[in-house]
Design a protein around this nucleic acid. Sequence first.
DNA 1: ACAAACTTTCAATAACTATTGAAAGTTTAA
DNA 2: TTAAACTTTCAATAGTTATTGAAAGTTTGT
Lengths: 167, 167
Amino acid sequence: MEYQEAKEKFISTWGSLGTLWGINKAMAQIQALLFISTQPLSMEDIMEELQISRGNTSMNLRQLIDWGIVTKALVPGERKEFFTTEKDVQELSRIIAKERSRREIQPVVKVLKEVSSIKNDGTEKTKELIKQTKALHDLAETADIMLNKIVNQQQNWITKSLLKLIK
Amino acid sequence: MEYQEAKEKFISTWGSLGTLWGINKAMAQIQALLFISTQPLSMEDIMEELQISRGNTSMNLRQLIDWGIVTKALVPGERKEFFTTEKDVQELSRIIAKERSRREIQPVVKVLKEVSSIKNDGTEKTKELIKQTKALHDLAETADIMLNKIVNQQQNWITKSLLKLIK
DNA sequence: ACAAACTTTCAATAACTATTGAAAGTTTAA
DNA sequence: TTAAACTTTCAATAGTTATTGAAAGTTTGT
């Protein structure tokens, strides 16, 4: 496989993967493109490379910047803006995990807490609702804690030893 | 908050959460309904409760069965089929983690492996592509291993001690 | 202050995904 | 074997989300 083919494959796979977890295709593709690029790219470069419109590029770049994954890079002597992405996968995964926790886990933890705290009127169905949502609540909270801790402390001794143990 | 309200809140939140990670609303809602129900439900029951069509119910129940989350339950003396979901959250999370790994992580690991294995022609851009996709590959593989191991062994001593350490 | 270079916004529209409902298919009881 | 009871399928349609492109907005150099 040659460079060009590999590049296209990577960008398109990353794009469709994004869709699978609620990140739109263009956003994921822009990030992928920047991730393997050796220098910052301009909006023109990105539009050209991915064959997407100016508006689309602008909006998705903005979202990536909001997420903290992409930053503007000033290139001396150039008027237009250039963009780079976080290149360190460790840091990148920390940011993504944080965002997914915020968007996916925390809202459900909040509702599960509310629902599992309703007044127990002693009926079978109320007991079941409380029991089951409480179990889910504990699970979601544990998952959230683990996701955050693991990603935050990825290189420390706890994880290192854990990895040795489970691999 | 009364039972009915809590129930509706739980089902609708679970449904929209589903959408966020690529599971359709109806499917997630059916699972939620079964999860808090004290006895198996028929297709009629589900249609009635969630106000969705027969076709929709049938198709989504099928998917839930394919995932291994829902099973048909034979109720003596009844001709129609009844359905229940896995009630144990531990087991439920194991199934979901497995499915997400299969659908979300494994395809990307596969492509990253291919892409990071291209012939290194010595150019800057090729070196960058290889380096970055290799780093992602390692990350995705580690994440996959951890997801599976953690969920599979949730109650064993490793996780118990880990949880104590990081909580 | 002007205009060229560039970016953002947003209404229109395209693309995609979910849902319906009725027809076709299957199972069961008599 | 028949028909009632039930489930599945799938073309049509509704609903949702992404994308475009042109107009409006902003910044910068002269």
